[in-house]
Design a protein around this nucleic acid. Sequence first.
DNA 1: GATATTTGACCGAC
DNA 2: GTCGGTCAAATATC
Length: 321
Amino acid sequence: MQSRLGVSGGGGMSASEDEHEAVIRELTRGRQLTARLRAEALRALRGQGQAEATAALILQEVSRAFTVCLNIMGSPASAPPPPEMPGVDAAAAAPFSLAPPRRNREDSIPREQTVTPSPHYDGYQWRKYGQKRITKTHYPRCYYRCSFHRERGCRATKQVQQCGGGDPPQYLVMYFNDHTCDTAAWEPEAAAGASAAMRLDLPGAALVAPRRGGLLDERGVQEEHERQVLVSSLARVLGGQQQFHHQSTPDAPAAAGSSAAVAVNVAQAAGPAPVVDAASGMPRLDGDVVGLDVMDYDDVPGELCFGDSYGLPGGGGGLPF
DNA sequence: GATATTTGACCGAC
DNA sequence: GTCGGTCAAATATC
């Protein structure tokens, strides 16, 4: 993967290459700081239902924006984050005593780990290939691999395990291996467009839209709407922060600004911005504005992840193990 | 018929 | 021997 700056830089160690490295450095730092902020926010908002879920999703989007930027910049840092599980609220994950994978193979080390109420939608398509009841845990673990595993040999996998019966329920999602399904034909513009379309329902999203209908599609549509609202809101928030940031600390690192700019662009491409609350100045996320309750988990069954046969409350039947 | 999901069995790591 | 990850046949869905 080639960086745009790298391509345009010409030969030799130039000033633009220094800039390139500096941008990568700051983006990496921004991603790490976002991970810390996420952990702190989840800890502070624990048990606060919608606020907790909204914060988790927004900060997940921020983190993803940094990753996308790092990908575009062709940074090695865009591959596996450090093994300290930056996206994880350790305190949130700890009560569920999820030990790291015992196998010492490289493949068994999660490249990313996160706790989210919405484990299904992360911009990629996954196929479930297994489920296992894990000892000393209340919920089974589901195993997914990239839908392009067969046709493109993509080795990316993820594991999803419900880690709490709260409202909304939280899921621990662990990612293994990097996606190779979209790098073979990688072109920055095309890839960025595809990525945005994939996540924001722009033309091109059909390329990765679930083939099957029914519950899966409804779920995907709902989560897609949620994502649009949240990304748009985030873009507005970050856009405001960017302005403030530039006014207050003009010589500060550009990472946050870069990410914000990307997020703003993506959000603008996604359509109209959400209504901003006159009192707080913050985007309104309520369903009245966008015709959707962003976090109306009353309509999301507990077995969203694990299916009817898992015997979770409301699912009926016993555990299959 | 094609594709996705379920689930018991198998295998490797500890 | 136990546990967790993956396989693959059976089943479900479109």
